[in-house]
Write a protein that binds this DNA or RNA. Sequence first.
DNA 1: ACGAATTTCGAATGCCGTTCGAAACCGGTT
DNA 2: AACCGGTTTCGAACGGCATTCGAAATTCGT
Lengths: 211, 211
Amino acid sequence: MHGRTNLTAMRLMDACEHLLCEAEALEDLTARRIAIEAHATPSAISYHFGSQEELVAAVAERVYRRLNAERLSLLRKAADRRAPDPPDLDEVIAALVGPSIRWSLDPTSSYPVLSHFTSMAKTHRERAPHYRRIIDNVEHHRAFVPHLKRIAPWLDDVDIGWRLNCALGIRSQVTRSRSRTEVLTNYSIDLDDPEIVIARMVEVIAPMFRR
Amino acid sequence: MHGRTNLTAMRLMDACEHLLCEAEALEDLTARRIAIEAHATPSAISYHFGSQEELVAAVAERVYRRLNAERLSLLRKAADRRAPDPPDLDEVIAALVGPSIRWSLDPTSSYPVLSHFTSMAKTHRERAPHYRRIIDNVEHHRAFVPHLKRIAPWLDDVDIGWRLNCALGIRSQVTRSRSRTEVLTNYSIDLDDPEIVIARMVEVIAPMFRR
DNA sequence: ACGAATTTCGAATGCCGTTCGAAACCGGTT
DNA sequence: AACCGGTTTCGAACGGCATTCGAAATTCGT
């Protein structure tokens, strides 16, 4: 009953993810198109997920898990490399923002799902539980706190969290407001090269954690 | 013909602005509701603006102008206070992000128009000319470049533009992802006090412009 | 006061997401 | 092999949406 382990439920999620990646704008995603691509009918979406909104949320959650796994893996690697000393600050920052940057520039990644999802959360009521469950989930960001605290022991948890939040804002600006970033930097930075962009971000974020 | 200096065109813009401020989500804004509030019919929107989208864009542009005027006024004030010496860095940053922060916390301001507008630009095709005209307009940001360059002469235009862009990302994060900011800072910062928030932002942005 | 141009209106169009009852399908029991 | 309850699929609705368009109404220069 209403299971999402069902075969067509899976096909609906895959179709939705694929369409979200291809879609230039969120309005290109319609229940009818998803259904056709999944060889099902629009009512299957309501049946298995309750609504199209919740289908997208389920897909976004799946993609988020993949991205966060990559982030945490890089963080662990950075911590292990220097253990038992504190990890390298630049490396930690790169672990935080790197995966998003690389995904957003990789045309084969599912990054568009995430940007479409957050804009959908704003278009519909953001307070809805199936949105908050995903948006307010910051466990994967909290994992960075203890490491950053070892690097900058003079900052307390609030300071660290605030700086983390600022770093995420910078990342969003770069991944989501590309045209603005281009104009402000006079088209002089190669925004297609993830490593250049990450280095630029580290250059700006690292000083937040230094005296 | 299709003029937006018309009386009902004005009433449509006012109604649209008002509804956008009240609206919890963008989906609450419908052509019918706008028309009712403006004592007109939905077709009046198409007639005067071409589409609902373009009506919202026109309203957003109007609000943007008010916000940017405030920003530039603060910047000028900061420059004048120290002339002919370079202005105070903290004051320049406060001029850049302050108005947005204050507006976003002032329930009587039209700030919701701007956040709804940017999320609408993402929902519909972002490349459409009436979006780019507004989003890519960064003249009011460019005005900050020469002042920042005097403060940090070792940075070139690209560095300054990049840091400006990062500062704007931080601002967006704080104004638009409030619940995330709250969680990451353990609810320990009073996000309702604009001056506290601005001080926190200066604390993080200023180091970008120091050696 | 007339006529052309501008503005308003209301019905119709074609989308959209979702609902709902009937049909189809499935695995386990007689 | 026939049956059956639970699960899934389907297709025809429904109401709401933005927009179009021709006809009515209004405005304004003459």
